[in-house]
Nucleic acid binder design. Structure first.
Lengths: 224, 224
DNA sequence: TGTACATCAGTGAACGCGCGTTCACTGATGTAC
DNA sequence: TGTACATCAGTGAACGCGCGTTCACTGATGTAC
């Protein structure tokens, strides 16, 4: 695992009870976010209140408020990476059709965005502001795309690796672009036609599949 | 033009010189944004310095800092709407192929994002935080999608209007999702394969076209 | 098992900083007669 | 054309507010002998 996905709390806990405090704070922060409160709205005071801790205890464990959110980001991405890897293993052995494969990955993404909606929104906004958060997001993306490109490549033996990579990358950003868009707009419906999660999976899969096929299946390779 | 796209400065100017101040402030704000400074980094002090004005003069014209950004948003969307309408007229008379039509709209979007990169980033982040900004963005989207659906519908006479609308909406969000994604990540390259604007237009058009065709061309209509 | 001492952990009142906003004042423009 | 008065516009020092962060202190745990 690379640098940016490593935990780095300020003061390593040396007693159990401080480890406890650390954990309680993380849990409380997640809970407050899950309740729909935005990150800037969540004050240190609120966090320590919810975690039955104190301001001083907080700062003994975390350098600052930002560090806490970074830890949540790392946690989320760790879990995401695990799920992704599981899906890779599954696909590697089962060798499903392109359609089924793409749908599997899109479904994982959609569900993760649903489960971690509020944390993801907080992170998305941070990413727009803070290079550290951004770097971590980029790294996760790249670690996911690599093996994805391999799997997709098996369905298009004649396509050049570079074209496969390019297609998978754009397919990836298509999916996450839409998901982030929905996150940003939250409850406000941008579109007239509402889609539930299953329908969204269906549409996104269709879009990605159509695009990837158009780019890689036809004999004329994209670049001249 | 609807409510949310109306200008509303606090105090209507009654003399020419105050209109001047108003304009100078708007220009200065745009200039500061264009220089790459983020909205929170741009202080009122910096704005009035750049516009050779003063703090008090600022507050005589604008209710607060937010109002100023709202005015910039309205300005941007007005221009965007004009461009979109021009493109509609063009397409309505020239009746190009679906491919050419989609490419035309995607190109307009990509260019606009390039030209107004920094303002758009500032707005994107505000949209994630502030419901007013969000509402305005949604309205622009819906006003653009309506006529787009009509044009696309002409290419798929047999498709149901509702399916056409759904397809156009998802096509739209595909494009803007990717563009917003790129905006958010800014200079940090998410993908290994770099795309310049023309290539991006090419890829996005391909994606949208493939998707729309897949959804509307085949006899089996999407919904059961 | 007891005592002394060192380190770790927790407490919350007080601080401070940055920036948006206000406000008392001066200057400019317009209008009435 | 001139004078008096009202309104508009501009000035910038001072204010204030919210929240993250610090810090002096108390309490808990571990260790040495």
């Amino acid at each position: 695992m690379s640098k940016t996905l490593e935990l780095r709390w300020v003061t390593p806990a040396k007693q159990d009870r401080s480890k406890d405090t650390h954990a309680r704070v993380l849990t409380a922060a997640r809970a407050l976010l899950a309740r729909g409160t935005s990150w800037p709205e969540i004050t240190i005071a609120a966090i320590v209140r919810a975690s039955r801790s104190s301001v001083g205890a907080f700062y003994a464990r975390f350098r600052d408020k930002d560090t806490l959110l970074q830890l949540l980001q790392i946690e989320l991405y760790r879990e995401g990476l695990v799920t992704a890897m599981e899906t890779f293993e599954l696909v590697k052995s089962a060798r499903p059709s392109l359609q089924v494969m793409i749908e599997a990955f899109v479904r994982v993404a959609v569900h993760s965005y649903r489960d971690q909606e509020h944390l993801r929104r907080a992170l998305l906004l941070k990413i727009g502001t803070d290079a550290d958060f951004r770097a971590r997001a980029v790294e996760l993306t790249q670690q996911t795309i690599q093996p994805l490109a391999v799997l997709v490549g098996r369905h298009f033996a004649k396509a050049r690796p570079r074209d496969v990579l390019a297609a998978v990358e754009l397919g990836h950003v298509l999916v996450y672009g839409v998901l982030d868009q929905r996150l940003l707009f939250g409850e406000t419906p941008v579109t007239r036609v509402r889609l539930d999660d299953d329908e969204l999976v269906e549409e996104l899969s269709c879009a990605v599949r159509s695009y990837v096929k158009a780019r890689l299946a036809s004999p004329r390779s994209s670049a001249k």
